[in-house]
Simulated scan of single mutants.
Amino acid sequence: MSTTVLRKDSTQVSEPSPPPVSRKAVHRQRALRAVGRVLLYTALAAVALAVLLPFVWTLVSSVKADRDVFTVPVEWIPREFHWDNYRRIWTDIPLAAYLGNSLFLSVVITFLQVLTGSFAAYGFAKMRFPGRDLLFTGYIATIAVPWQAYMIPQYIIMQKLDLVNTHLSLILLQAFGAFGVFLMRQFYLTIPDEISEAARLDGLTEYGIWARIILPLSKPALAGLALLTFVQTWNDYMGPFIYLTDNSLWTVQLGLRSFIGQYDAQYAMIMTGSVLSVLPILVVFLLGQRYFVRGIATTGVKG
């Protein structure tokens, strides 16, 4: 076959058409594509299995006896199932109180970090004032400072305020977070400034613009920040370990220490408590994973 091309001098020149793709080449391309897809899914399954393996081991160990937890080789199927571990743990330690304390701190700190982070991020993203970018850079730079560098000054401040051994000390110290401000600011930058300008012309104050326009548009970023903060607060061990000494104020992470004695430890009960402590995080993540993925994916579009 050939195609006719019209040149500038109005003469027609025939050019050969590209040869048709053979059926064998098409089948070869499809086979290579299918093999590549199988290899990709196999690699992803292997990675997922490697990630889930520690949790599976914890789950299996939670229904074992103490002497069988660290057997070599690992017994993935226990010879004897101790389902009563999930009944005993509620009476051996005040697990319900520990879970309640963890839930209270996680919910309150998450709410405050989302509130303060989104409000500060609005100022850095949508308001113009002298030194804004320099102030934001300095504030974000605090993320690079390790917590151990200011851990002792923080404790001295809380001690002077007589807030040691109270939940309020942890709430005040974690109510603000530079990472949350950074995350929310990056998302706010993706919202056109014309929306804020139009709202100002309609008479809305900055507080009204933030509450009635920016926040409803920021649900994915808010959900992502809330999930990250909730998980971090729930899993926090050092903070409650330093500031909480009363057993009635302990979180679940501290409560699991009750199974560690001076000379031995109830490892099976520790695994049982660990499984129970993971369940709230799993529920929260399953409920908010769609918003979490959308929020993380859109925070770096514009900066």
Rank of each mutant, 00 (worst) to 15 (best):
G295I: 06
G273Q: 09
S2I: 01
T251C: 07
I270L: 13
L59M: 14
G117N: 03
V69A: 07
T116E: 03
Y86D: 03
S274C: 06
L244V: 14
K64V: 02
V38A: 14
F136N: 09
Q232V: 03
R23T: 10
I209F: 02
A226S: 13
M271I: 03
I296T: 07
P153T: 03
R28K: 13
P153D: 11
A199G: 06
R23D: 15
V283E: 04
V284K: 10
L112I: 08
V13Q: 14
H27Y: 13
G138I: 02
A199S: 13
L254E: 12
T205R: 09
N235A: 10
R67A: 15
L44T: 03
E15F: 08
A211L: 11
A34C: 00
I156S: 07
L172R: 01
L40Y: 08
F81G: 04
L168R: 02
S196G: 13
Y98P: 02
P220H: 03
G131S: 06
F292S: 05
P153S: 06
V145Y: 04
S277E: 09
R132Y: 02
G273C: 06
L227Y: 04
Y41N: 09
I242Q: 12
A45N: 07
Y122P: 06
P192A: 02
L49A: 15
F241W: 11
G208V: 06
D236A: 14
V72C: 00
T110Y: 02
T4C: 02
S14H: 08
L228R: 09
K8G: 00
Q232R: 11
Q12T: 09
L215M: 13
H27D: 15
L134I: 12
D246G: 12
M238W: 13
D66H: 06
V108T: 14
I152Q: 11
D133N: 15
A121V: 04
L52Y: 06
V74Q: 13
A211T: 12
L6E: 12
P130L: 08
A31Y: 00
Q289P: 01
R7I: 01
T3E: 15
F70R: 14
L95C: 02
